[in-house]
Design a protein around this nucleic acid. Structure first.
Lengths: 156, 156
DNA sequence: ATTAAAAAAGAATTTATTTCGGTTAAAGCT
DNA sequence: AGCTTTAACCGAAATAAATTCTTTTTTAAT
């Protein structure tokens, strides 16, 4: 899919990021094309994986996930395959929704969702702290979130 | 909208989180209802804002956003309205896609997307470090992301 | 200018969404 | 238990959208 994206493609990406369930008809109106070429462009963007997937965004609070945290993890590199061991463990923990390998004072940054503090303690005690390659970890409890764009900053 | 969610509603939420553009017809098959009540349930979930919105997920790399970081911010509380001043500034910076007020060694955790290191230096020099209420900040550059669920962990 | 290739439009067809009336099933009451 | 009310579901019809295909337009290159 060598060829580059034009202005219209970027417009489509912007609109679909903001409204993933817009109809092709509405989308075609917004970008000023007829439905047929609009659909063709969307399919191209999907096939070339500029668009990876579509998702509903739910209200975590309403669904009882009252506790959200980031956990900073430092690993103990005195073992073999430290990182792979860690990643394998992380994959099995459903409360961890994000895992980033980062530079700085810690090695990994995790995002966690749980129901309440009791569940959080349980997660820490029975899962995180039992991962052998974890040297230290520190919790950053999220008190509030003032910005959370489901949209990546694209220029056009 | 007082009434609670049943198993079917949770199933719908799970499916729509994983595939935000599934047709109502497919969805109805997956949950074992006919299209009519399926649609009615989805609309209820939307109206009660269990579902907040729908989004396409794009490939940031392919779109030229090569640099992703977290920034830990500590504020200087020797001014009035420190936090509000900070939040107002953050809102104007499009490269910042997330802003969380957290507990721990820092006050805020930001998520940032930029094109390249040059743009990152520019962001730091011309925007972040010019916010008067910012005392210190530290970058955690994301080297890789091994987990990024667009789905919240729901039991059912 | 002419041609070739790509993109867009229009129209027809297929598929999905939405509405509505009727039925069943469950829940609450006496 | 029997009766009643309410809510959920289904099927079918009507509306709307997606998709396909053919024709036209635009673009770019020669």
């Amino acid at each position: 899919m060598g060829t580059e994206l034009d202005k219209t493609d970027l417009q489509i990406l912007k609109i679909l990021q903001a409204n993933g369930r817009i109809t092709n008809l509405q989308l075609s109106n917004e970008i000023g094309l007829s439905p047929a070429p609009t659909l063709e462009r969307v399919r191209k963007l999907e096939n070339a994986e500029y668009i990876k997937s579509y998702h509903a965004l739910v209200d975590e609070e309403k669904l009882g996930l009252g506790i959200k945290t980031f956990i900073q993890i430092s690993l103990d590199f005195h073992q073999k395959n430290t990182i792979q061991t860690f990643l394998d463990e992380i994959q099995t923990i459903k409360e961890i929704t994000e895992c980033h390998h980062v530079t700085g004072q810690c090695d990994f940054l995790l995002k966690v969702y749980v129901r309440d503090i009791k569940s959080y303690e349980q997660l820490i005690m029975e899962k995180i702290s039992r991962i052998t390659v974890v040297k230290t970890f520190q919790t950053m409890m999220i008190m509030s979130t003032s910005k959370k764009e489901p949209i990546v900053p694209l220029e056009y």
